[in-house]
Design a protein around this nucleic acid. Sequence first.
RNA 1: UGGGGUGUGGUGUAAUUGGCAACACAGCAGUUUCUGGUUCUGCUAUUCGGGGUUCGAGUCCCUGCACCCCAACCA
Length: 558
Amino acid sequence: MSNGAEAPLDDFVRELVRADAASGRFGGRVQTRFPPEPNGYLHIGHAKAITLDFELANEFGGVCNLRFDDTNPDTEDTAFVDGIIEDLEWLGYQPNGEPLYASDYFEQLYTWAEHLISQGLAYVDDQDAETISQQRGGFGQPGIESPFRSRTVDENLELFRNMRDGKYEEGSRVLRAKIDMQHENMQLRDPVMYRIRHEPHHRTGNRWHIYPTYDWAHGQSDAIEGVTHSLCTLEFDSHRPLYDWYLSHLPLPGDTPRQTEFARLELTHTVTSKRRLATLVNDGIVDGWDDPRMPTLRGLRRRGYPAAAIRDFCSFIGVSRANSRHQIELLESFVRQHLNATAQRKMAVLDPLRLVITNWPEGQVDEVEVVNNPENSDDGNRLVPFSGELFIEHDDFRADPPPKYFRLTPGREVRLRGAYFVTCTGFDVDEAGKPTTVYATYDPATRGGNAPDGRKVKSTMHWVSAQHAVTGSAALYERLFAAEVPGTETGDPMDDLDPNSVSVLEGCMFEPSMGELEPGEVVQFERLGYFAHDPRTRLLFHRTVGLRDEWARIQQRG
RNA sequence: UGGGGUGUGGUGUAAUUGGCAACACAGCAGUUUCUGGUUCUGCUAUUCGGGGUUCGAGUCCCUGCACCCCAACCA
C-alpha cells in the first residue's frame, strides 16, 4: 500500500512560508508553536495542528514551541498540562525546549497594557458584560460607545492598577481596547483585554486578579517567543485584524508574527469539540478520556492506533481552507497499513465452539510451527500446541452452509492453520439447535498444513488447543456515533450516540503465547482484526480495527 | 441583517498558476495467498448554477446559489 508513502508536501501554508522566506521576511527564519489550552486532553483534531506546526518548522529548519494558552483560571488544570505533554510525546513530537506558558508573560502583557492606556488606546469600562454586549450592536447594526470610553489616561491607569491589585469585584470592570465601535468586524468593536477573576490560577496561584483574554494574550505571546508563523483554525479568521492591531501598537522586541488560518479536522462518526468530549466523560457515557471509543489521543492509543499511523494520516490529508469532514475509514486504512506491517499474528477464538478430532491419538500433543508475521520474515516462527480437543470460531462451522461458504461444514475438508487438514464428520446441537461440539477426522499426512498429494482446501481456519488455552476477554467497538455527521437529524450530536457501541466478549480462548503479551501491545488475531492488550487489565483486548472482510460483504449483499 | 471565508468523483486532497482533471479512501471485477487478510491488475465516478473573454477555462471576468465563521469578561 502506498497511501502513507507520498504525503502531499505542499499546500497553501507551505507556499506562504516559502514566499516569506524568499522575500526575506523574518530574516528567513521559521518558528511555529502549538498552543493548547490545558482544559482537556488532546484529540485527533489537535493531531492535525500538531503535525502541521511541527513538520512545517522541521521542513524549514525551524523549531516549534509547546505553549500552554493558560489565560483562563476557571477551567484549567495541571492534570491537563501533564496529560498534554505526555500525549504530544506519544505522538512523536519533541517541543523546542521546555513547555512554555502564556501565564509566564502576564507581567509583560500587563506592561504592554499600560503602554496602550498611555497611548490612549485602552480604557477601563465599569459596565457589566450584558451592557457591553448590547452596546456592541449586531451584524449591520451600529455599536454604541461606552460612557467610560473617554476617561483620561491617568484615571485609566489608576483604575487599571486597582484592578490588578484586586480592589474590585469580579465582573465589575474590564480593560478594553479603544478601536472602533462602528467597525464592520465585531472583533474590533472595543474588545475586552482584561477581566477580573479572583480564582486561583493553576500556575500563578493568587498573584493575579486580572487575566488577559485570548486575543490580548495570543499574538503578544507569539511575539515574545519569536514565533514567525502562527497557525490556527478558521474560526479565528475574523480575529486576525485584531491580532495585527495589537501587535502594530506595541514596542515589540522583534519581528511581528503572522497569523494564518486553516480548516480544522472533522471526522465522520465522531465529535471533536472539547465541550462535547467532556460531556461524554462527565456523564459517564464513556469510561474516561482514554476510553477506546474516544477520539482523544489517549483513547486512540488505548484502542491500539499507532502514533505513526496518525501522523501519516495527518500529513496525507494536507491542509486547506475548506471546511470538510474526513471519513473515519481513511484513518482506519492508515491504521491497518501500519499494523499489517508490524503486528504479530496470534490465534484467538472469540466465540468458542468445541472441535473434537476423533482419530487423534489419545493424550497426544503436537507442537506446530506458525509464522509470527508473514509481512516480515525477521519476526520468525513460533510453536503452538495442538491436541485432539480444540476450539474454533462458531462462525467457522455451519451445519447448513449458505452459498459461497468455504468453512467447516459436514463432509467438508478444511485446513487448521499450520497443523492438519480435517474433515467434518458430525456435530452435536443443544435444544435450540445451536452446535455445541463438532467432530472431525484429521489426515496425519497433512502435518504442517499441506497435503503431499497436492489436494487443496478452500479455507484455512484458526484454532486453539482446549487444554492449553488461556482465557480472556475482548471488547468489540462500533462507531460511538451511529450517524456519519452526529447531530444532522436533530441538531444535537448526542442524539446519535450508539447505545451499543461496545460489547465485551468473555471466555475467549487464546493461544498460550498470549499470556506473555506486554501491556498495550497490539497484535493481529488472525482472520479477525487487530487487538490492543489493555494497559492495565491483563488479557483484556480492545479491537483496534477489524480486517477487511469479504465474507461479511458477501453476506450483506445477500 | 453587515463583514469575512469556502465550493473539484460517494469522501478528502491535487492540477506545472490559462494547456489531455490526477492521487488516496470507499465501491465493483479479477489476481495472488496456509488469514475470505496481504499483494497485484482493471473498472466505476468529478470542476456549484448561468453568462462572458480566449484557439483553449477547474483556473480570468460578470452574475446567481449553497455552506461555514464572527455580535463571551471562552479559547
